[in-house]
Design a protein around this nucleic acid. Structure first.
Lengths: 380, 380
DNA sequence: ACCATCTAGTAAGGAGTCCTGACCAAAGGA
DNA sequence: TCCTTTGGTCAGGACTCCTTACTAGATGGT
């Protein structure tokens, strides 16, 4: 039995939610406009606005309608309903932003990191970035959404290290670092998953319910979107494709990540791919470059075939430093088109994709937090 | 804006739904029992029962409470609320069942098929099976849920033929065949997907939200369950693993289905696996049998690794004629345990899994149909 | 045999929510 | 100045749900 019990209180809450959402989407509205937008009658809207104003969630903006007819009063969310924190964490540095319930970014700070910074320095950079945006926004930070360049454990939100995959950021628990400045829930996910959500919201996978986003950079990963959601799997490690068996050089079956070892394209003493070396070896018109491109295309093709077989996407999106490189992407596309059950391949197009995806979710989370704010019982 | 508009009608509908669901789960209840179960007050329940009785959805069963206190009246769903059809279609034959809203199977018929029957004979068998159960149930057949032993197109519900995969049932549109006897929606899905749902509901994957069900029989396939749902993908072809690249004999990368050609285990002039030959070649203690088992385990292991990489399941379930065969399953399990990121492997345990899964969904669909039955406006 | 006890269901009244339709207030245009 | 237009309020009514008190009818103890 997980069926909501009907009650008048529930109805009222639904009315208030309608009113709040209308204002979050539009910014400011008169009561008559809210009534027209939501389909709720004018007296009911007036009641709801009074309730929400008394609870401190709404406020008269002071603005008035102009034009024919009686002057109307514009209402908007109260100024102190709080903000949400968005941050992206990678070995290059930390970017932190705050957004309000209208989806507007209100502050931003970037903190760079030197070479091979380690988790301690990264945590400090995160703290620093948050400290820089914090004073520039009014109200509380009611929730945080974090993107990290490593796999994220779904249950704990901690970054995890998988065997034979590079640990780019390192052992870090963003929720712990943010426990001070943020007084609500902290949601952490992998940057590739956020990038996929961003491509679905505004990029080349606009509105596509089933697609696979393949990230080819220093690390290898992908995001699987089915039925309009990124599917994270039990531990949150869905899409960690380093160990997927594919075709290596000379037709041998081997884990995807091993292909780069065979081709001599991994960084020394690391499992990370040497992107500069890869681009140097694979671009151009020489016979060896063509051979390298072919080897990469076959290896990636095996991965794409696996994704198609298991997820049946409508589209495949290529992202990452070398995955989105036109010369290589074209080779992949050509090879993949030859395989049975090929699907369209597109290139990622959203700028700062991980941050964009996390930002959209942060707005949602903040709105939900505002709507579910416990309100005092009406009594006077 | 996809937010429900609040209204009193919606509240009443919710109350009625609570009452109906309580009765569907319990069979018969007095109004006082319904009130206790749902948390709704007794007068409100009485009102709802009166409404629903007048609409013909509920009826006094004639039974009365015994024991201390005033006699109570038992109510139950009306006898003519209809039934749902469940059918499983495979080259072996058709099994048809009807279920009522309580989840009880009320009639069953099986129609066998000869060797290589073809779609026409299969359609006839389906018609015949339905004709046999139809007279044994009162009321309409308000919905149908069908399991088919071939891939199913998600948009149309038709069976589809994939290159290099056996087309076991053949070109068939179950919805068309059933258009006469069934007057509601017809839902068609692959038998492997239904089997996975059954294992999640009552079998070895009980309550597991993320797992992969791998079917190894004449055909090859799998079902991917993430976030508690089977994910079908854009066309409904998620889990069609015949073309997935894996390790073949002598370490060569090749599509999964090709491994069986290399091992000489496919049926003549077909892409179907010769299960008898496979079991003959792989079982026993001879050196060649051990070699064959090893080759199969490596090939399946590559597929499992791909599924783990892309879906991150908590569990893998092996099903199908040779996948659930203990000797082979053990070889697969042993090999898979050696790979990085191994996860537990279990054997399927539900009997008639496809039918069981479809049956459960049929009950749900029927219940929803009854609850959303348009009811006459109260007016006298 | 009688009465206390227990339970299903009803009745009455009240609180709360939403809507319709009439009405009021104030500004712009004719 | 008067009419039109528009935001907002008021009054009344319909409806839903709940609490409290009560009735009906059976059991079980004394």
């Amino acid at each position: 039995m997980s069926l909501a019990k009907p009650s008048l209180e529930m109805l009222r809450a639904l009315t208030d939610e309608n009113v709040l959402r209308a204002l979050m989407e539009e910014g400011r509205l008169t009561r008559a406009e809210i009534a027209a937008r939501t389909g709720i009658s004018k007296p009911t809207v007036s009641d709801s606005v009074r309730r929400l104003s008394e609870a401190g969630l709404l406020a008269d903006t002071g603005e008035r309608t102009t034009g024919r007819g009686r002057v109307g009063t514009y209402y908007s969310l109260a100024a102190d309903t709080g903000a949400a924190l968005v941050a992206s964490i990678s070995p290059d540095g930390v970017v932190a932003e705050t957004v309000d319930a209208f989806g507007t970014a209100t502050a931003r700070a970037e903190v760079g990191l030197g070479r091979a910074p380690g988790p301690h320095a990264t945590a400090q950079a995160l703290t620093e970035a948050v400290a820089r945006v914090r004073p520039r926004v009014p109200g509380r930070l009611r929730t945080a959404v974090i993107s990290a360049a490593d796999p994220v454990d779904r249950a704990t939100g901690r970054l995890v290290h998988l065997p034979d995959a590079p640990f780019l950021v390192g052992d870090l628990d963003p929720a712990e670092v943010l426990a001070g400045p943020v007084d609500g829930a902290v949601l952490v996910d992998n940057d590739i998953n956020w990038a996929a959500r961003a491509e679905r919201a505004t990029g080349c996978a606009l509105g596509v319910d089933d697609f696979v986003y393949v990230h080819l950079g220093e690390g290898l990963g992908c995001a699987v979107v089915t039925d309009a959601e990124v599917r994270r799997g039990h531990h949150g490690l869905a899409g960690e494709i380093a160990h997927l068996y594919t075709a290596g050089p000379r037709g041998r079956a081997m884990p995807f990540i091993e292909v780069f070892a065979e081709l001599g394209l991994r960084r020394a003493a690391s499992t990370a791919i040497d992107v500069d070396a890869l681009l140097g070896a694979a671009l151009g018109d020489s016979a060896t470059a063509r051979r390298t491109r072919g080897a990469l295309a076959r290896a990636v093709g095996g991965v794409l075939a696996a994704a198609v077989a298991l997820a049946d996407p409508r589209l495949i999106v290529l992202g990452g430093l070398w995955g989105a490189e036109p010369g290589i992407a074209e080779a992949i596309r050509e090879h993949f088109a030859e395989l049975p059950r090929s699907v369209p391949v597109a290139a990622a197009q959203v700028a700062e994709p991980a941050l964009a995806g996390a930002r959209a979710r942060a707005v949602e989370a903040l709105r939900t937090a505002i709507i579910t704010t416990p309100r005092p019982e009406a009594s006077d």
